[in-house]
Design a protein around this nucleic acid. Structure first.
Lengths: 210, 210
DNA sequence: GAATAAGAGGAGGTGCCCCTCAGGTTGTCA
DNA sequence: TGACAACCTGAGGGGCACCTCCTCTTATTC
């Protein structure tokens, strides 16, 4: 918590700039560009946020809250299928147009306990909502968490391509995929889903940008 | 067409190295890394391939042939749905494990007439195969070329994440999506597909790497 | 209003990449 | 075998990004 007035201001400007830059360029956005955008020197950025992760967490905290609020509402829905749909719609809505937040949800950062906790929590929640829809016979039994994460990944790539020109395309993609998830439309899938371990490693691997 | 023996050899080594590097790092792979991998100096690379695009075309030519051969076989299948499935399975099989070729198919390079022709041809083919499966009542009528391209994009991101650790995951994803494409008991999708123009722009935009 | 500690600035070292070009090398052909 | 054109090399300039650290500035406090 900084004390000096100018320090507080720099802090706020940096967070705002980071949100803008991460939203457009993803979590690997240039820190120098963020400092420029905030109107402060690069040294000031590093004074406030020694690592990229510090800045990421500060920038996405409100967005993650937004996600949690929406998730709570969704989880109150009675019907398991409708609950799954609402949960996923909320999950993707908060990502829409924010390339960085999608990156953030797509990956794992093993060296950071705080984000690991967030991800564990989210994965567990998705797992539960999905399992309930499967138990009710509405969702096909042969899909898994990994398939949902795959959908998150796809969404990121769609943003890379469409930028801001097709801002609702995520919703089309989601509803199309939901039709694939329905039990009554299911046909056998020739490959098993990724194991938990494969999924985890893949989410980490995504961080080693290529 | 180079004449000197050493030149021919350099040429071949460069193409081989480019195939390896593009496969792992995508079409933006470092040209210096390719030269290193080929065991030639960077100047030699530029002598043989003045632009990145020249190298891309040389590197992917055989892979594209492979695709065309598989596509021909698929197109001979009688049943329109089975034809669509075979066509897509071939399309994704040739991309599997080659991040660069996926990039190549995912994008448009408006400044290069040769690749534009290739892409036009491919889009037209997909459009036809899809339309036939729709006319036969097997594929739902509310999907379009853009949805298939979306699947190509998704595939690329899956490769980013899984690398070589889950080499058959593309097949799972494809078959899941095929279930979404089936006409029987399809549910309405709340958003329209991208227009041809939006799709084209998105494919170009993907090139402006972020 | 002066002292001070916290903050801001930004030059500069390092690393990676793009691309060019001057000068040395070598395969080929007469 | 000698001459030459084609070829190869790699240093180096320009860009961008990361990150550090020394210097200067300034809000605050007494």
């Amino acid at each position: 918590m900084p004390k000096r007035r100018d320090s507080i201001e720099s802090h706020a400007r940096l967070i705002a700039a980071a949100q803008r830059e991460f939203a457009v360029h993803g979590v690997n956005a240039s820190l120098e560009a963020i400092a420029r955008d905030a109107g402060v020197a690069i040294g000031t950025l590093y004074r406030h946020f020694p690592t990229r992760m510090d800045l990421l967490i500060a920038a996405f905290e409100p967005r993650f809250q937004e996600f949690l609020d929406g998730a709570s509402s969704a989880l109150e829905i009675e019907d398991p299928w409708a609950r799954l749909v609402a949960y996923l719609e909320n999950l993707f809505r908060v990502q829409a147009g924010d390339r960085g937040f999608n990156d953030f949800l797509s990956r794992r950062f093993p060296s950071n306990a705080e984000t690991e906790r967030i991800h564990d929590q989210m994965c567990e929640q998705i797992d539960t909502v999905l399992a309930q829809a499967q138990q009710s016979g509405q969702a096909r039994p042969d899909i898994a968490l990994a398939d949902i994460v795959n959908l998150i990944w796809s969404n990121g790539r769609m943003m890379d391509a469409t930028g801001t020109t097709a801002p609702n395309e995520w919703r089309r993609h989601l509803y199309l995929m939901l039709d694939a998830y329905r039990a009554e439309r299911a046909h056998p899938i020739p490959e098993p889903p990724m194991t938990q371990e494969q999924l985890y490693n893949a989410m980490v691997h995504l961080g080693k940008a290529y």
